[in-house]
Amino acid sequence: MNPREEHLESLLGEYDHGVRKGWHPDYQSWRIFHALSFFIGGTTFIAGTVCLFFPGFDFWSAALYTLGSCGFLAVDVQEFFTFSGALLRANIAMSLVGSFLYVVGSVGFIPVVFAWWPVVGVWGFILGSAVIGMSQAFKTYRIGATNTLGRFSLHHIFTDVDAATAAGVEAGAGIGAWCFFFGTGLFQRGPLEGADSVLATVLWVWVAGSCFFTAGSLFLAYRHFVMRVV
């Protein structure tokens, strides 16, 4: 392998490269936990956002967001301790940090915490979304540049089933994160009451983001259980 190929291997390394010994993607239990954690994350985000359309459900919304954020965090922790390769693990670590900030932000939206210090919830989601969005963008770039001599190619993503479904996983999560980034930014600026309230717009942006997260999880489940790949 020449130096350029080694560089591309470290930059674009597929998930089947550098797998650590022990519990790994060949085990059905690994794939079930991986897909289920992601799916729980997306669907509880949908449910948590829907709760906010109804007065008095703030606590349940925050509880569902916390559960979902823990689901996302579980996926990232699982991947971080499964795969090797410095740049690949650094990319996974970015997502891990973002998911941890989502956990912090979700707890920050629990009514008693939000009343005490609202910045925890708002900035937990803004910063977490920014980190996850950037991390997922790089993952999508890696997919689009694999088997193309390192040049990103949309044509490769749209014409190769493996690349298309992998991009569905990563881009779905990335778009979901950016929806929460812009939605939470709008939530922070307000106003949240009165004729000029932006709350309805914020909630629908969050619903869209949650649906993109869930779509990413469905692409992942398809890859694991239909295509039999990671």
Rank of each mutant, 00 (worst) to 15 (best):
96 L>C: 11
41 G>C: 07
72 F>N: 03
208 A>K: 06
24 H>M: 10
14 E>F: 07
41 G>E: 07
98 G>R: 03
26 D>T: 07
4 R>K: 15
133 G>Q: 03
156 H>Q: 10
12 L>Q: 05
122 V>N: 03
104 V>W: 01
16 D>N: 13
41 G>D: 04
15 Y>E: 11
130 A>E: 09
110 I>F: 11
73 L>N: 07
86 A>V: 08
15 Y>H: 10
153 S>A: 09
164 A>E: 07
4 R>L: 14
92 I>A: 04
11 L>P: 06
149 L>V: 10
6 E>F: 14
101 L>I: 04
67 L>D: 08
6 E>C: 10
145 A>H: 05
122 V>T: 13
169 V>M: 07
54 F>K: 04
43 T>P: 01
40 I>M: 07
198 V>M: 15
32 I>R: 02
144 G>T: 00
68 G>T: 09
214 T>W: 00
8 L>H: 05
110 I>A: 11
10 S>M: 11
104 V>C: 07
150 G>Q: 07
145 A>W: 01
223 R>P: 03
163 A>N: 11
30 W>Q: 02
172 G>T: 04
148 T>I: 02
34 H>F: 13
220 L>Q: 12
147 N>R: 15
122 V>Q: 02
74 A>I: 06
2 N>M: 10
89 R>Y: 09
100 F>R: 02
119 V>Q: 10
215 A>I: 11
41 G>L: 08
4 R>E: 15
178 W>K: 00
90 A>N: 14
218 L>E: 01
96 L>Q: 13
170 E>P: 01
37 S>Q: 04
23 W>T: 03
51 C>E: 04
151 R>Y: 04
136 Q>P: 03
68 G>N: 06
99 S>G: 15
88 L>Y: 07
19 V>L: 11
84 S>P: 11
117 W>P: 09
76 D>L: 00
203 L>W: 02
3 P>E: 13
31 R>F: 04
134 M>Y: 13
136 Q>A: 06
165 T>E: 00
62 A>P: 01
173 A>S: 08
184 T>D: 00
51 C>W: 03
223 R>G: 01
25 P>L: 13
50 V>H: 04
221 A>M: 10
117 W>E: 09
223 R>Y: 12
55 P>G: 13
92 I>F: 10
17 H>D: 15
31 R>E: 08
138 F>L: 15
182 F>I: 05
152 F>N: 02
125 F>D: 06
100 F>D: 03
2 N>H: 11
162 D>K: 06
124 G>M: 02
75 V>G: 00
213 F>Q: 02
120 V>L: 13
175 I>V: 12
35 A>P: 00
